[in-house]
Design a binder for these strands. Structure first.
Lengths: 336, 336
DNA sequence: GGACCTTGTCGAAGCGCTTCGACAGTTGCC
DNA sequence: GGCAACTGTCGAAGCGCTTCGACAAGGTCC
């Protein structure tokens, strides 16, 4: 193993000088710096992470807690994870992967043992068991999602409320008067997931504001469930001309069902989705959508956690990423 | 922070005794052990990971390199990842998440800095840039997948060859004489992914062995691509009665296309899939499948890496996880 | 031209742990 | 009953790094 002493000897300086070259915490003459950097490269030196962590009380690692549930759309999780890893690397940090089934104990373990400096927790429930722990120990943490009481925490999420409203407004602007919302499976609501509830209430208040008629249906992402739900919907509401879908797994079945029912998109019925951009673009017709910016949320989470680590005092407690509309071919003016 | 010295003081022993209680590397009297364990619990002591790593040259962390590509089925990646994290935890190790885009440099970094003790690399290509590095440095590594030359490495993967053959045999046993294979997108083959090639060759040699007529088609996982491919297939081969599909994203479109073409499954055409079990079970009709045991492969990878870390000399160089058939309702005897 | 900064470098302490050798006390054996 | 072997515990060294205080050398100012 190459140590800092080897580098120091090779460059003809003391170990502390090498350390200061690496950290930039003291001024170093141009000449010395270049010589040390040269030695580092020649010897292939990499500082020992454990030693560094011990001496500086900074591990340069953050923990990422991912959910294990399968009722979430997995590709989105993966987008979060990769954008967080990429973002962390840009700040010279690594990412330790934790699964949610370890619960608060997992957080306590990696945190108390100084394995990680900070944590990012995904899939926060309204009444999350990890929240009291996070609040209490005051370790730098960022939650993706909002618990019922976010006081004292740093949270970031998509603005689901605004996204749902944006869908409603888009349909209303096109003249639709009677619309429906196809949402997450009932189970997602029951386990107290804030985003599902915020989406629904965003939908409902926008509907009220625009004076539309609307109905909300949770839905399993299976073909048969979607078919049954949609059929019933049209039976009960023959005047329905607009559909908002917030359920990745239901998108393809929905389009297929509508095709099967002979209802053309967008001629007879307009469909707008809250789903990942690539899903919206890989179905036919290309979906008008308000895409979930997983990548951006992940990066924001990393930035927030990094500024907390840097000791910034002005880290915003709540960050809502604004939605934007992605034009597609699945919505059109309502034909009388 | 609670240190080992605090625990020692509280228990009235020396720090080294506490260390030996923790590691079990020297015999400790029952009495002392209990007292120390009590103190550990009372004080909420967690050994400092960096200090431990520095003193013992073992970080108790393994790196997991996941691919960033989107042409793989993401839920399977996630299954691998979670089973690896879970498995690692059972061996008292944590998992550092690396993305493939850092390439060999990422491995070098985490390895040289002693951040991790071993690595598991997923999505190995036939001519993988990380393989020379892994072979050369001889750090404990397990590859999920096989490069063209696996000599000197430890690899584990599903037995794709046998899995494809199992599909062929199943259809042949049911009397089918003319079958087709719907595989991964062309791009997956082009970038030199061993598993796609092994699957195809397994299919082809089984077909030859059973004296069947068969045709192989790569396929994009989009609805339209599947529809076009399947239509063409039946146009060119009217006698086709069996379909093997190895492409998760093509499964739902395939069933829908067949429905659209008026070809009933399994009455007119039998379909057997190589895909995750839950996908096979969540379509209608329930698919006969040879499910990809991601969970098992992940666990095996962890076990292999752990025995390498333990210095075992007899770690098998190649581990092939055997396929098994999952009965469903999508295959039936060929009707004359 | 002395008092005072500034700049660049060094030596040494110490982070919390593991592990080696030492050793007191006990047990076993002829 | 004396010697050997074992058991359980301790003290100290050292893992590789960061960081603090010290300090020499060179500038600046009146």
């Amino acid at each position: 193993m190459v140590t800092i002493a080897d580098v120091a000897r090779h460059a003809g300086v003391s170990p502390s000088t090498v350390s200061y070259v690496l950290s930039g915490k003291r001024s170093i003459s141009e000449q010395t710096r270049v010589r040390v950097e040269e030695s580092i490269k020649v010897l292939g030196y990499h500082p020992h992470a454990g030693a560094r962590s011990l001496a500086s009380s900074r591990a340069n690692v953050i923990a990422l807690v991912v959910p294990l549930r399968t009722d979430m759309h997995v590709p989105i999780l993966m987008q979060f994870a990769t954008s967080i890893v990429t973002g962390a690397r840009e700040h010279d940090h690594d990412v330790l992967l934790l699964t949610a089934d370890e619960g608060p104990d997992g957080l306590r373990r990696v945190t108390r043992s100084a394995l990680v400096d900070a944590v990012i927790v995904m899939d926060i429930e309204l009444n999350d068991s990890r929240v009291p722990f996070l609040r209490e120990v005051g370790l730098p943490a960022v939650l993706i999602g909002f618990p019922a009481d976010p006081s004292g925490l740093t949270c970031v999420d998509w603005d689901f409320t605004a996204a749902a409203a944006m869908c409603v407004d888009h349909l209303a602007d096109l003249g639709h008067r009677e619309i429906a919302f196809l949402g997450s499976p009932a189970g997602v609501f029951e386990r107290g997931t804030g985003f599902a509830q915020r989406t629904t209430s965003g939908f409902e208040s926008a509907v009220a504001r625009r004076g539309l008629h609307a109905v909300v249906r949770p839905c399993e992402p299976s073909h048969s469930a979607v078919r049954d739900t949609v059929k019933r919907l049209f039976d009960d509401h023959p005047g329905l001309t607009g559909l908002v879908v917030h359920n990745e797994g239901a998108v393809a079945p929905l389009l297929e069902t509508l095709r099967g029912l002979g209802r053309h998109v967008p001629e007879n019925v307009s469909v707008i989705a809250m789903c990942p951009e690539d899903l919206a673009e890989h179905v036919s017709p290309r979906l008008t959508a308000v895409p979930i910016p997983a990548e951006e949320i992940g990066r924001r989470a990393v930035e927030l956690v990094m500024s907390k680590l840097d000791g910034a005092a002005d880290v915003p407690a709540a960050t809502l990423v604004a939605p934007h509309l992605l034009a597609g071919e699945s919505t059109a003016t309502r034909h009388a």
